[in-house]
Computed example of a mutant assay.
Amino acid sequence: MTQIFAHRGSAGTHPENTMMSFHEALRSGAEGIELDVQLSKDGQVVIIHDESVDRTTNGKGYVKDLNFDEIKAFNASHKFTKQYGKTSIPTLEEFFLWFKYTALICNIELKNGVYPYPGLEEKVIGLIRKFNLQERIILSSFNHYSIVHCFQLAPEIEIAPIYSNGLFMPWIYARSIRGKAIHPSIKVISDSMIIESMKAGIAVRPYTVNSEAHMKRLIDIKCSAFFTDFPEKAVRSRKISRNKS
């Protein structure tokens, strides 16, 4: 069965990377959640996608330049405020306190391609071990040096490279860095490459799959999983596909 990962939670319908969005992902019937982590100025692991808070909150500034108390004070509902009221940027620890009581899987993307955030890998792995979640976490990044470092620190936690350009025989590359999966942009992966990769024992989880046509295509070829901003739509699409077969 193709697993569905809610991208930044249910980001198409709720404020992305917030507990509100993660709760909706669970309600929708998705198997997994994808979220992004960075470090605040005072070293807290916070869940946010952009390097700055400008787009997703009512605040301004770079995550790396703001203390956690400042970040926490911003309204992260932003464009969804009228619909859902205010909410805040969560820490990874706050997320884990809820997540540990679910049956979900979580893909944590380390956002350290622009700013390196020394110690991010150690802090994230420390929290995963604190909550004993090693079996339910995938660590991914566009910064492949970072996930190799993660593997060296914690070989028991799955790693997966993210990429957005054509990669020749990506299953061989994934194996070479000890990854168990690849996370390609949906724009750069063909059906034959997905099938070939899975045959080689490397899972394929494309991002960001929001059109029903793409969802159906991936479900029909039994792709390992995909990331979507609309988990409810994806779960429905999978159900329809199953009923037809």
Rank of each mutant, 00 (worst) to 15 (best):
T18F: 03
Q134S: 15
G119F: 06
I138F: 13
L127P: 05
G201I: 06
H183E: 04
P15L: 06
S190G: 14
F99E: 05
F74M: 00
G43N: 12
N243L: 15
S190C: 11
Y207W: 15
F74R: 00
R217G: 01
T102Y: 08
N17R: 06
D42Y: 10
T57K: 00
V209F: 01
G9H: 06
S197L: 06
R205C: 12
H149D: 12
E212G: 13
L120P: 01
H49L: 02
E93T: 02
S28Y: 04
N58I: 03
K100L: 09
M215R: 07
R27H: 13
S241P: 03
F22R: 03
Y145T: 13
P170V: 05
G29S: 07
D191L: 14
Y207G: 00
A213F: 13
L153E: 06
M20S: 10
Y145W: 14
Y163P: 08
A174I: 09
K187E: 15
R236V: 11
R242N: 12
E121S: 09
M1A: 14
I138S: 11
N112E: 08
S21L: 07
S211T: 13
D69A: 12
V209K: 01
D191T: 15
T56R: 01
H7M: 07
R238W: 08
A200G: 10
I108N: 10
G201W: 04
K79Y: 12
T56E: 06
A203K: 15
S190M: 14
L97N: 14
L120M: 07
D229E: 15
S10M: 08
N75C: 05
K187V: 11
E94T: 09
I159N: 01
A30C: 00
I194W: 03
A25S: 06
S164E: 15
V124A: 10
N58P: 04
A203F: 08
S141F: 02
S141G: 02
G32T: 04
G43M: 10
T13Y: 09
N67W: 07
A11D: 05
I47A: 05
A154V: 04
I108Y: 06
M193C: 12
K111N: 04
P90M: 01
H23Y: 15
F74V: 00
